[in-house]
Design a protein around this nucleic acid. Structure first.
Lengths: 193, 193
DNA sequence: AAAGTATGTTACTTTTTGGTAACAACCAAA
DNA sequence: TTTGGTTGTTACCAAAAAGTAACATACTTT
């Protein structure tokens, strides 16, 4: 029997990660984590207090933020910048099962950590929106409205794509559907900016 | 003791409705339904077979389809028609807690009834899209792309609004935010159609 | 080396949830 | 009115989930 608390904690958090990616945050239960990690559940209580505490720690460790460098904001072409930023958003969500599960979980949970996450996301988003306003001369509400339209839509479709293949005839569980959607977004920006 | 199967079934289905509106489909469990309805759970098994059967019946009774009359599709102004149809979509979702819960449930469940729902929704949507194509001269993919952008976005924000007040500075849990969003949608249609 | 604490194991209790058996009351048809 | 099936009640059983007690082993400090 080796004693190594750090190692144990890491194993437990790794187990959480696997469960989240596979089944989502809703499935992170004490017994599930215990058996997935191979650790006894009493250690989870000792080291993290509760499932809520465990999830808080997991979210804190993972860097789930829109990791966009807000210090070097766009110069020049606003259209190109806008298009690019939504491409990045789509790629981020499409490539991360855990992030998709997080977004899904947010729709039904009131976990305290979620507020923190949202606050930070909101900050980043507002910075980006503000700088697009400056460059384009559009009003804040307009830019915010359009960003909202696009990001909310992308979030929804990425989550839905895990259970459902087609939406309005678009194949949202494969690249083909997303290319069409990107084309639509590009088209929209060409027309309205 | 009064014997009245029809009445009992209705009480059970009503209980399902209340649970769905309050806590969502995930919370529709056998014991919860039994205690909410005041009926003994064995009757649920007898009359509906299982929770899946009960939910199937609930979904069948409720007319959850986008009840849009596809026989009298738009004449004349495409822009006005498009704007109006998305207004209707927003109102539908914003006014029905049960529908919001259904949309949320779809994001994580693989319940067989859901496929049926989606099929019928898809049919209606495609009809509408097709007629907008004709009137506007736009390609099918373009119209489908734009519809997808708007409806997916609206679905997401309506669900999110139950737990979260603000998204990109928009107040999505009150009319003020939705008016701004509608204004954005109108603006978009003015520019691109 | 002895004592004290942190770590880990085992086995248990409790609670919740799902599921069923056995019986009682009602209604309708013969 | 007896008989048979339907409806409803009560009380259980079983499985899964959360949570804890008691003990054993390793490490640290003195």
């Amino acid at each position: 029997m080796i004693k190594d608390r750090d190692n144990t904690e890491r194993r437990i958090l790794d187990a959480v990660g696997r469960i989240v990616e596979r089944e989502g945050f809703e499935a992170v239960r004490i017994n599930a984590v215990a058996s997935e990690s191979g650790m006894s559940k009493i250690l989870i209580y000792r080291y993290f207090g509760s499932i809520d505490g465990l999830l808080a720690k997991y979210l804190e460790d993972k860097d789930f933020w829109l990791n966009f460098d807000t210090s070097q904001l766009p110069q020049g072409d606003v259209k190109a910048f806008s298009k690019q930023i939504f491409r990045a958003y789509i790629n981020m969500l499409r490539s991360s099962p855990a992030l998709r599960k997080l977004y899904r979980w947010e729709l039904s949970s009131k976990h305290p950590s979620i507020n923190e996450l949202r606050k930070r996301r909101e900050e980043t988003a507002l910075k980006i929106i503000a700088s697009v306003c400056e460059l384009s001369g559009e009003s804040f509400d307009r830019v915010a409205g359009i960003s909202t339209l696009v990001t909310a839509s992308v979030s929804y479709l990425c989550i839905l794509g895990e259970n459902c293949g087609v939406y309005n005839s678009l194949q949202i569980d494969s690249d083909s559907g997303w290319e069409k959607l990107l084309e639509t977004i590009d088209f929209m920006f060409d027309k309205i900016l």
